[in-house]
Each structure stands twice: as structure tokens, then as C-alpha cells.
Design a binder for these strands. Structure first.
Length: 871
RNA sequence: GGGAGUUUAGCUCAGUUGGUUUAGAGCAUCUGCCUUACAAGCAGAGGGUCACAGGUUCGACUCCUGUAACUCCCA
């Protein structure tokens, strides 16, 4: 069978992924092996694969595949999150396109549309992960609104309510006027926004005097219930206790003093609007101010505003500014930039708003979770996130868990017309409970219309995917939990990671995972975050189509240093594709040898084989260490160099027979063995091409995907050093050939002046092949009319037929000589420093003496050569 | 305003407890090669006062202080 010109990724990806599935390699059930478990951060059920997922899931697949090949029972659990706000928004948009308004539907009708939509489009992302090669146990796919999962969420809500940590309360929340729901602080994105600062005059009651306040929100003045100044502010001391009149609506409001006010900001006088600003609300509570809410749910002005009723808040801002100006209240405006909160989901300006919501008190539940990370019971990589985590946990605020949505887990609270309520699983339980608690019979109860925050379900993920709460102590949860590694983006450290740790301790009594690896954020070449609005997010599936899944995995991993953001550049995928091509060509070369084996034996290739064997051990050990420290990018880089440079550029060239010449069978077999091991090292990173090569190399009954790694012996350092020396000698001589513009076909005669001729004897056959030397011999003295180079302690003379122009070589040697001389000087200076010789450790001293001796010797050799040239 | 982090070659990054031949890699660049595995390639080369200023030390990319720029998080 002839091999294709290049690796055909599309065919191979389909072939191998379905083969792996057929063989059930990704399926895990508890057995006598040690488990290695990862739960995948569930993407939104509405999601499509983007670069962030690609990075995240490639990392997880690398860890899982490596664990599998190390003999662990590897289990990687997939799933999706119902993503209440995002999904509901999509369904609402879909209905709008069909001409259906959400408000015209009942809850049940809406939910049936939502489920229909979910069944049709949900989980596309899981199919896309298969394209990437992810080795997930698909039988374990979980959705956060699966029956059992749903029940667990509700039961946990009830449990926390019983424990007294869930409560109902009117608090200032972030209101999304588009999605018509409360948002948690973490769902609000602050952005620098250019605004106008309006200076407005409020009349002082009973005088002709005015007080000037500065505000960016003139549309809220109808909600003003006080003006506040700093108690020490001389400008306003005479106004303490007086009243001001709100323009346009003529409300009488007190002028109060509080040191909260910054004297140097604006005019030093602050209008207080308790219903529409968090700080004003706190101030209002302190001074017992009235609360006037001038907005409706959707951001239009309410009846209480008295004017502009029904108009949108931003329209009113413009209109009221004009009216205020016309009536003489507006005295000036200035440009002002400040941070404004936007909804993460809908990107509208968030409105602070007083509202009745459900809250989870965080103080007690968070303390074991803080301790666990601080004491490295759970380890964070990179560790810098420990600080971030601590800071948040120590200043934690109560969690608003209710959302004004229909898609999600409906809050199990039941209300009576009297306003009394109970928390219960269903209507029947609720009525029974209500009757005993409140002694009212035949009560008619209505369930809370709201849903729980999405994260209130995802915080159970690590144990509920194994039904650890719904079916306690089952075989799976006992075997797989605590999971091993959580791989996630730092953006959701508070949303998700912290809360999973809390839930783990609260409900399983143990931590949910051993360690958390935080990936970087994927940015574009210019360092901008990838986003739909910028249009800088490439279509991953198209990239996979074009370059192949292995190349995509390579590209994203090679540019992903541990703990840093990654700047994504398509060039990295190209590099990955080129790497595929390189590997494929090495296969083609070796396949050409297959039919040309001979059993005649000689020792010519012994050195190459020994050296590569040691090099392979050395790198395998290095890679293992890097993996343990999550230096995945470095590990891949190391394997890349091993394959491309050591294997292809050196080893294969060293053992390669001449054109159409035979190859010794033992060399051929060793080469197949090496290539196999290289593919095994590479497999977690690039699963498809490695599996294909594994099967191309020789007839196999097993698959690389599940082949166990062999133990590696520690390498022989002498062998490695000799290999390094050989490479340096070859490069050095090639450099001279290059500089003298010799053609590859021009052969040379090589003379080596060395004290170590035994070593070179074993290297000679390779050396002559690699530098095209027709003859290699040893010299005890300088060789006239030759080009010279010094490598280590040895001197090499190159004789050619070409006319010799020594000028380039002379200047090169002089440059080298200068460098060595200044180096020597610095060493000597150090050694003549008594303080150094007294204080430095002996091994450092010895090293310095060695440096000195080596430098002196090299200087000597070079000076001799230069003298010869002159002569 | 508070906190955390970053600053090393044109770009992206390594650099372990201060001493390892006066800083390493990949990409990009330059030179020469279409050499029967590979031009998506081969063989070489060039390129850095380690942000700046002080300090500690026999010795600082590495430790300390300050300055500047950038990034992120929280108000």
C-alpha cells in the first residue's frame, strides 16, 4: 500500500474516533484500578464551540489520555448547563422571530417551547467536542435539569432553608431591564463609560438661595429624598437642617450632613436617591429617608415619577436635561468618565433596584471552603489565584439566588394570599405544611414564579453527575469522588469554583477535587478578548476542517504558557499542520526501508541507537515532570523538539542508508520501536496522527490510545554528552562549509586533533556521512592550508580542493578570541577577589578554575591557528 | 480609591533555593540549498545594558526599596 502524500486528517479523525468509541475506550466503570476523574465544566446548552472551549477541553483531554495510558481508570464526564438567562433569552428571541411574545404565553407553554428548542439545538457543542478528539465517557452525559439533578437542586434549596441560611429579603440588587431579572454582582460587567455630569440648582425653601448638586442621572431626580453634604464643608454649614425643593416636581426634601460625601467631587452636594443607588440606599437607611422608586421593571418611568411616565430612562435623561435647562435649573454640564455596570448577558446598563429576592447567607458555608484552599487541601495552579480567592472569600456577600425567569429550577416556595409562605417540594406538601404551621385549613397556595440562579445548580456538579446527593453512597460516587483535577477559566473562580468547594464540603463532607488548574483567557493576536461583537473569534470547526484537529490542539497548546493568557494566532495552527507533515514524512521514509532489510551486521549505527535510546529516556522523564507541574505547553514543546530535531534531523539522518541501499534489520526494528514510543509520548496532545502512525508502523492488534507507558530508566549521561559533542562538531564543520560556499556534493578531508581519539573513532562513520568527508584522520599538529574550527577541547582541520580564502575564517577566529579573552578577564577578576575566594562555596570555586583553564586552553589553540594563517 | 499581577531577542514565552562557560526556546528575519522522506522542507547565521533608579552581597535576570508603563479583580 502506498502512503498518501500528506497526513489526511479528515479521514483519520473520523476513522479513529469511531474506532475508539466502538472499543469503548472512553467508558469507565469502577474497578480495582485507581480512578482519575475529571468533570467537564458544563458549557451552556445553547453554546457552540469557541476557542475558550477548545483550550479548556484540549487540556482536559491531554490529562485524561495521559492518565489512561498510565494505567489509571480514567473517567471524564461530559454535560451541559441549562444556563437560565442565556437560554431563556435565545428562546424569547426565537419566539419573537415567529411572531410570538413571551407575555402572551403561559409558563407551561413557554417551557414546552424551551424544551423543544433544547432538544433540537441543545448539546450541539458536545458533538463538536468529538471533532476535537475529546475522550469523554458519553454514557455519563448529564444535564443540569435532568430529573434527578433537578430534584437535588430543589432538595438542597429546601435543606438550606431549613438550616436557616436561605432567607427572603428586600435588598438593593442589580436589575437587568431587558431580561427583567435580578443579576448577581458577578454577572455585572463594569465598563468605563463617557457620561455628562449635570450641575442642577435646587431652591432652598423659604429663601431665594440655591444649592447646586452634580449628577450623571438627572432622570432620577424625582426619586430624590434628600440632599447630603459633608458636615465639615464650610460652604454648606448654614444649610444643615433646611429643606430643598426638587425641580419640576417641587418635592420638599431635607438637607442632611454625612461624612460619606466627598467634598471635592462635583459641587460637594449629593442628591440622595435611595431607590436607585446602592450607596444612596445605605445612606437612606442611616438617615431614615423615604424611598421613591421612579422606574418600572423594564426601565421606563413609573407613576411615582409623576412626569415622563412610561418613557425609557435614557430618553428621559435627554428630555429632562432640556427641560431643566429651559427652566433655568441646569447651570452647566461637564464631560465625565466613570464605570457603569452592564449586564453580562444582555449588555444593557444595569439598574440598581430594591426588590424582594431569595438570598443565601454565605458566611458559615464559605469558611471551610476558604480554609481548604489556604491550607492547600485543594491546590490551585497557578498559585497566584489563591490570593484572589482569599480576597473574595474574606469579603464575601450574601448570594442572591432568585432570578425572574421561567427556564430553570423553580423556587419551591408557596404563598398564601395573606403573604405567609412555606418552602416545600410540591403543592401537596406545601398545603400540609402550611396548614400545620399557620393553622389555616383549605389554604390556596401559589408557587413562586421565579427560578434559581444557574450557578445554584452547577455548584453541585462534581458530585451530582455521580448522583452523590440524589442517591447517596452509590458505587460511582464512592469510587470517583473526590475528583482529581478541575480545569476551568479564572473568570468563574467565584461564580463556580468557590461555590463548588462550598457545596462539596456541605453535602459530601469532603472536597470536590484535589486541584484546580486555571487556564488563561484566549485573546486575539492584539491581546483583545475574543468576542462576538469584535468579530475576532475564529470559527473553530472551520479551522479543524482546514488544519486538522491535531493541528488545532497543537496550535492552542503551544501558545498557551501555564497560567498566562494566550494570544491566539492562526500561524500556530500552521505550525501544527507542518508538524503533522513532518511526522508523516518520517513515516514515509521508514516505510521505504521496510522491504530493504538485511541481516548482515556491522556496528556502524550502534552509537546512534544508544544515543537516541538515552535521549528518549531523558525527555520522557522531563516531560513527566513538566506534566506534573501543569507545564503542558513546555511539555509539548519538548516533545516537538525531540521528534523534529533529535529524531528526524539527527537520528534518522545518522542511520539513513544511502540511496537504495539496504538497512540492517536490527536498526530498522529499533527505529520502529523509537517511533512507536515517540507517538505514545505525543498521543495525549495529538491523538489522531499518533494513533494512525502507530498502526502504520507495523501490524498491531491493540491501540495506542490504551497502550500503557513503559517505565523509563535514567539515561546514561556520557552517551548524552557524546551525542551533544557530535552534533556540535557536525554543526561547526557545516558552518565552515556554508561560509566557504561549498556545495553539498563537494567532499572534504577532515583531520581531528584531540586527546580523546577513542570517542571520535566511534563517531567517525556518522561524522563522515554528515559533513561529507571522504576521509577522517587524526592529526597531532596543525594541518597547513586548511580551514580550522575549535569545538570543546578539540581542533578540526578541513582540507578541500577549493582555493583557500582564509579572511572570513580569520575574522571569525579573531572575534572568538576577543570574546574568550574578555571572558577570561572576568573570571580572573573574580578569582583575584579575596572576598570571593573566601566566601564562595568550593564547588563554585572549582567551576571558576575550570572555566579559567578551559578558556586559556582555547585561547592557546586559536592563537596557534591564527599564527599558522599569518605564516 | 483598595488589592493582585506583569515588564527578558521583532513577537510569544522559559529561566527552579543568588554563582552552571559574561542569558535559552519557538515563531519571525537573513544567507545558501528544489541534496530521491519532507520547499508545509534542509543546512547555517544574526539578534537582548534582562522596564528604569537605587540598595543588600565577593557576586543580582534572580532578594529589598522606589519610579514608570500595562493587565486583571474589587469598590
Amino acid at each position: 500500500m502506498t502512503l498518501s502524500k500528506n497526513f489526511e486528517h479528515q479521514i483519520n479523525e473520523n476513522k479513529w474516533y469511531s474506532h475508539w468509541l466502538d472499543k469503548q475506550y472512553f467508558k469507565s466503570t469502577p474497578d480495582e484500578r485507581t480512578p482519575y476523574t475529571i468533570v467537564m465544566p458544563p458549557p451552556n446548552v445553547t453554546g457552540v464551540l469557541h476557542m475558550g472551549h477548545c483550550l479548556n477541553n484540549t487540556i482536559q483531554d491531554i490529562l485524561i489520555r495521559q492518565a489512561r495510558m498510565k494505567g489509571f481508570n480514567a473517567c471524564w464526564v461530559p454535560g451541559t448547563d441549562h444556563a437560565s438567562i442565556a437560554t431563556e433569552a435565545k428562546v424569547v428571541a426565537m419566539l419573537r422571530e415567529r411572531g410570538i411574545a413571551k407575555s402572551s404565553l403561559s409558563r407551561e407553554e413557554f417551557l414546552s417551547y424551551a424544551w423543544e428548542w433544547k432538544e433540537k439545538y441543545g448539546g450541539i457543542i458536545l458533538q463538536q467536542l468529538k471533532k476535537l478528539g475529546c475522550s469523554l465517557d458519553w454514557d455519563r452525559t448529564t444535564f443540569t435539569m435532568d430529573k434527578d439533578y433537578y430534584d437535588s437542586v430543589i432538595n438542597i434549596f429546601m435543606d438550606l432553608y431549613k438550616k436557616g441560611v436561605i432567607y427572603r429579603g428586600k435588598r438593593m440588587i442589580n436589575w437587568d431591564v431587558k431580561a427583567l431579572t435580578a443579576l448577581s454582582d458577578e454577572e455585572v460587567i463594569r465598563k468605563e463609560t463617557r457620561q455628562k455630569l449635570y450641575h442642577l440648582n435646587y431652591a432652598i425653601e423659604g429663601t431665594n438661595d440655591f444649592i447646586t448638586i452634580a449628577t450623571v442621572r438627572p432622570e432620577t431626580i424625582m426619586g430624590d429624598t434628600a440632599i447630603c453634604v459633608h458636615p465639615d464643608d464650610e460652604r454648606y454649614k448654614h444649610l444643615h437642617g433646611k429643606f430643598a425643593i426638587v425641580p419640576l416636581i417641587n418635592r420638599r426634601i431635607p438637607i442632611i450632613a454625612d461624612d460619606y460625601v466627598a467634598m471635592d467631587f462635583g459641587t460637594g452636594a449629593l442628591k440622595v436617591t435611595p431607590a436607585h443607588d446602592v450607596n444612596d440606599y445605605a445612606l437612606g437607611q442611616k438617615h431614615q429617608l423615604e424611598v421613591v422608586d421612579v422606574f418600572n421593571d423594564n426601565g421606563t418611568l413609573s407613576e411615582d415619577a409623576q412626569i415622563y411616565v412610561g418613557l425609557d430612562r435614557f430618553d428621559v435623561r435627554k428630555k429632562i436635561a432640556i427641560e431643566l435647562e429651559e427652566k433655568g435649573y441646569l447651570i452647566k454640564t461637564e464631560e465625565y468618565t466613570s464605570e457603569v455596570g452592564y449586564s453580562e448577558r444582555t449588555d444593557v446598563v444595569v439598574e440598581p433596584r430594591l426588590s424582594m429576592q431569595w438570598w443565601l447567607s454565605m458566611k458559615d458555608i464559605s469558611s471551610p471552603a476558604l480554609k481548604s484552599v489556604m491550607e492547600e487541601e485543594i491546590k490551585f495552579y497557578p498559585p497566584k489565584f489563591k490570593n484572589v480567592y482569599r480576597h473574595w472569600m474574606e469579603n464575601i456577600k450574601d448570594w442572591c439566588v432568585s432570578r425572574q425567569l421561567w427556564w430553570g429550577h423553580r423556587i419551591p416556595a408557596w404563598y398564601h394570599e395573606s403573604g405567609k409562605f412555606v418552602v416545600a417540594k410540591n403543592e401537596k406538601d406545601a398545603i400540609a405544611l402550611f396548614e400545620t404551621e399557620h393553622n389555616i385549613s383549605n389554604a390556596v397556595l401559589k408557587q413562586d414564579e421565579d427560578c434559581l440562579d444557574t450557578w445554584f445548580s452547577s455548584w453541585l456538579w462534581p458530585f451530582e453527575v455521580f448522583k452523590g446527593y440524589s442517591n447517596p453512597n452509590n458505587a460511582d460516587i464512592n469510587y470517583y469522588y473526590t475528583t482529581n483535577t478541575l480545569v476551568t477559566a479564572p473568570e468563574i473562580i467565584f461564580f463556580w469554583v468557590a461555590r463548588m468547594i462550598m457545596a462539596g464540603y456541605e453535602y459530601m463532607d469532603v472536597k470536590p477535587f484535589q486541584e484546580v488548574y486555571f487556564t488563561g483567557i484566549v485573546r486575539d493576536k492584539q491581546g483583545r478578548k475574543m468576542s462576538k461583537s469584535l468579530g475576532n473569534s475564529p470559527d473553530l470547526l472551520e479551522l479543524i476542517d482546514q488544519y486538522g484537529a491535531d493541528a488545532a490542539r497543537f496550535g492552542i497548546m503551544i501558545s498557551s504558557p501555564a497560567g498566562n493568557d494566550i494570544l491566539f494566532d492562526e500561524a500556530a495552527l500552521e505550525q501544527g499542520r507542518n508538524f503533522n507533515n513532518k511526522i508523516w514524512n518520517a513515516l514515509k521514509l521508514i516505510k521505504m526501508w521496510e522491504a530493504r532489510q538485511t541481516h548482515e551486521h556491522n556496528n556502524e549505527n550502534e552509537f546512534a541507537i544508544n544515543w537516541f535510546e538515552n535521549r528518549l529516556s531523558e525527555v520522557s522523564i522531563e516531560v513527566e515532570q513538566m506534566m506534573q507541574q501543569f507545564k503542558l505547553s513546555e511539555a509539548l514543546k519538548t516533545i516537538y523538539t525531540l521528534i523534529w530535531d533529535d529524531f528526524c534531523s539527527w537520528y534518522l539522518e545518522w542511520v539513513k542508508p544511502g540511496y537504495e541501499q539496504p538497512i540492517q534489520a536490527n536498526v530498522y526494528n529499533k527505529t520502529i520501536e523509537f517511533f512507536t514510543e515517540l507517538m505514545q509520548l505525543l498521543h495525549p496532545f495529538m491523538p489522531f496522527i499518533s494513533e494512525e502512525i502507530y498502526h502504520q508502523l507495523t501490524e498491531r492488534t491493540d491501540d495506542l490510545c490504551v497502550r500503557l507507558y513503559a517505565e523509563k530508566k535514567s539515561p546514561n549521561q556520557t552517551q548524552l554528552d557524546q551525542g551533544l559533542l557530535l552534533k556540535q562538531v557536525i554543526s561547526g564543520i557545516r558552518d565552515i562549509r556554508n561560509k566557504q560556499q561549498m556545495k553539498p556534493k563537494d567532499s572534504i578531508k577532515l583531520f581531528i586533533q584531540t586527546e580523546n581519539s577513542v570517542v571520535f573513532e566511534s563517531l567517525n562513520s556518522i561524522l563522515s556521512k554528515q559533513v561529507n568527508a571522504e576521509e577522517i584522520s587524526f592529526a597531532s599538529d596543525t594541518v597547513p592550508n586548511s580551514f580550522t574550527t575549535v569545538i570543546g577541547k578539540d581542533k578540526f582541520y578541513i582540507l578541500t580542493e577549493q582555493p583557500i580564502d582564509l579572511s572570513t575564517q580569520k575574522s571569525a577566529l579573531e572575534k572568538e578570541l576577543n570574546h574568550l579573552k574578555s571572558f577570561l578577564m572576568s573570571v580572573e577578576k573574580k578569582l583575584s577577589n579575596e572576598k570571593f575566594t573566601q566566601n564562595a562555596k568550593q564547588e563554585i570555586l572549582d567551576l571558576e578554575y575550570k572555566k579559567k583553564a578551559d578558556a586559556e586552553m582555547k585561547i592557546n589553540i586559536i592563537e596557534l591557528s591564527l599564527k599558522d594563517m599569518a605564516g
